[in-house]
Nucleic acid binder design. Structure first.
Lengths: 338, 338
DNA sequence: ATTGTTTCATGAAACGATTCATGAAATTTC
DNA sequence: GAAATTTCATGAATCGTTTCATGAAACAAT
């Protein structure tokens, strides 16, 4: 690859403006400088089209103005949404985002974490699955959905409230016997609270409920079998299902369809995440919507916080309910697809 | 934010190994060095857990080992897929990816392009919409889907072949009268060839066809009106539709559904992109699949190419057909959603 | 044994920013 | 008006690499 033609340096600007090097540095960094000096320097910067060299800056200050974001992938609409919102929040603060897709791979996760120690980024925001990630305490690290111990803030939706909300919505929709379906990491993480919240909601609303819980890696057929066991004479024992993610809800809907059941006529389904197809504002299924914008904003706020001692250990942000096919009230992102 | 505790430097390694600074540099960079020297240096590196400082490296060499990727968003499954594949391709070469979401915004696009001149990245891979982006010729820049002139390679699917393939598939499926629906940027870009390819396919297979072409920003209702005009006595004039993207196909399917038409019984629909919901391997609709893995690989190959003079101006990669709901033969990405 | 050639470790200089001790100029004080 | 104080531009030193001119050591040729 070609080396980019040599750009003007601060020294060039200083010569052009007839001031000292340090003065240019101050102007560039917005530090107080005599008015007439500032004007001359700014003119010179303009004239030479000067841009700071971020390597040199980083070498001296150990700051890159960039944050690494660790996500499993960008396929899952929830992750895609997070990536987008984090990008926006970082951009607002003139930070760059390094997106790292870990594919749920613990080794990759650890490698990226180590990056921060090579001073390659100023901090990390990670949605990770490695149960024993090694993170230096008091490193600028913020997790999403996984509480890793004091000193490492965790930002999550209010998963418990979300679970409860799902139960209450099902009750509102007239359900009498419902089921909770879950598949995913067996790790202790915040989303696990969806179950407890749901159970509590069922108790409060006197809903009869069952659980079917699979672990990551278990064959999906576990759910199919479960549903078939509860399927008699063309009717399902349940009139409502709460799936732990929209992804699962989406797959379960396909199964139900293949069994000749109609959603939502025969059975209500509520997922979790707020996944929107093509980001066009219409939800894939009825869902508990995670506030990805607020999550992103909070993560960025925390990762850039100066006084790391005062960072809260766990932040839970409020969720909301949206029914399938409806459009969110947030303006949909620009969405030309070609 | 806290400054990371000072890490060992090359000088420390040199002292520890009892060799000169330059020798350490050579070992680190894999340049030829006496065997006994190499061993001592490697031992010292191991012992001190030395990591090169990438700022210092960048300052001297003007290389960051990072590439900026410009995409409108990560919502659209096609863009999400590209992001993922580019990340993989870059990772293989130990490059980092800076993902920049431009939201189709010309100003943002230009700003990111300017970044390369600040030496913030070693190159750019951009899927952009700004018709008059200013790119220094012979800058390590590679576009996706938009040919910007000689010296700036463009990587795209074989959109013409894809269009033709869509027509042929519709013919194979027994269609007699079809329509092409398009919305998107009015820019001259590679995807525009989908139309010509489709027309050609229709001619070859003696298919009767019509076109409905909207511009970006035009109200979507244009399509609804078009379909209604061609809807009489519960029947549509067309038995097949080719939509320029899966996104559009998805929306059109909703409209058809609301008109009481069934897909694919009453009307066949083929989209373009190969969008998969949740990346679970099953296609959202029948579609012409873009080879995102090959596109990503080619983009990375080209952007990192040493001799920029020999880069091809336009690379078209083969597409394939997949019918809706089917699963791709490529192993689906790991997909725990929680 | 002497000279010529090759090999290769050495370490100073450079990259371009930040920082800070220095002292000139401006301002205040008595 | 002189002395004390404050203000603030200056530019050398520094960060941790890469690069390259230098010359010592090893080897070859005569």
């Amino acid at each position: 690859m070609k080396k980019i033609s040599s750009a003007p340096t601060m020294k060039d600007v200083a010569r052009e403006a007839g001031v000292a090097l340090g003065t240019v540095s101050k102007v560039v960094n917005g530090l107080p400088v005599g008015e007439n000096y500032r004007i001359r320097v700014e003119a010179a910067i303009e004239k030479l089209n000067y841009q700071v060299n971020s390597y040199a800056q980083g070498l001296k200050s150990s700051r890159t103005h960039s944050i690494a974001v660790l996500l499993p992938n960008t396929f899952n609409p929830f992750f895609a949404d997070l990536a987008h919102q984090l990008n926006l929040a970082l951009q607002r603060r003139r930070y760059k985002m390094l997106l790292c897709c870990t594919a749920f791979n613990p080794t990759e996760e650890q490698e990226y974490i180590n990056m921060v120690r090579q001073n390659k980024v100023d901090g990390i925001i990670g949605l990770t699955y490695n149960p024993d990630l090694v993170v230096e305490p008091d490193t600028p690290y913020v997790t999403i959905d996984r509480y890793m111990g004091p000193g490492i803030p965790c930002v999550a939706s209010d998963n418990y409230a979300g679970g409860q909300m799902a139960a209450e919505k099902l009750a509102d929709l007239g359900c009498r016997k419902v089921a909770f379906l879950r598949i995913g990491s067996s790790l202790t993480n915040e989303p696990n609270k969806r179950r407890s919240g749901f159970e509590n909601g069922c108790l409060v609303r006197h809903l009869d409920y069952e659980m079917k819980i699979l672990d990551d890696g278990d064959p999906f057929d576990g759910f199919v079998d479960f549903l078939k066991e509860h399927f008699h004479n063309g009717k399902l024992d349940f009139d409502g299902l709460f799936c732990v993610t929209d992804n699962l809800a989406f797959q379960i809907m396909k199964v139900l369809e293949s069994m000749g059941l109609k959603v939502p006529e025969d059975v209500q389904i509520i997922g979790f995440d707020g996944a929107r197809m093509f980001g066009d504002g219409s939800y894939v299924c009825s869902t508990i919507v995670q506030p990805t914008d607020a999550i992103a904003e909070m993560c960025v706020e925390l990762v850039l916080m100066d006084n790391m001692a005062v960072r809260p250990p766990l932040v839970c942000l409020p969720v909301s309910y949206a029914s399938g096919g409806t459009t969110s009230d947030v303006p949909s992102p620009e969405n030309s697809g070609i």
